[in-house]
């Protein structure tokens, strides 16, 4: 079982090829990677199958990607999404 890494908010997260970004973050012990638009509450993965949109994350500069659907890739730049992801 080989592992690679992607960058998440400046740290390396190990993943096994085939895992989603969300699965890799959960496996790394990080259950949240977004704050909500109104209250700034932390959110992470909830439904795990692309239905709930709670796990939105910014991947390689593109906000609002569902972390449970995007496959992790070596060297990917993943960052916590604040609010809508467009107001930085």
């Amino acid at each position: 079982m080989s592992t690679s890494t992607f960058r998440f908010d400046g740290t390396d997260i190990a993943f096994v090829p085939g895992q989603s970004v969300g699965a890799a973050l959960v496996a790394a012990g990080r259950p949240s990677w977004r704050t909500t638009r109104h209250e700034g509450s932390p959110r992470g993965l909830f439904c795990g199958i692309g239905v709930c949109f709670d796990c939105l994350v910014t991947v390689d500069g593109f906000p609002n990607e569902r972390a449970c659907l995007v496959l992790a890739e070596a060297g990917q730049q993943v960052s916590t999404q604040e609010g809508s992801g467009h107001d930085r």
């Binding site: 895992q19 699965a23 509450s41 992470g44 795990g48 449970c68």
Partner: peptide, 30 residues
């Protein structure tokens, strides 16, 4: 997909649908 009923704290990270726990296992080995 899993049907949900809200409860106080259900929006805390670490609260999942039952299906999510299984999807993580089956799809990611996590």
């Amino acid at each position: 997909y899993d049907r949900q009923l809200p409860f106080p704290g259900w929006d805390l990270p670490g609260v999942y649908t039952a299906g999510a726990l299984q999807a993580l296992l089956k799809g990611g080995g996590v």
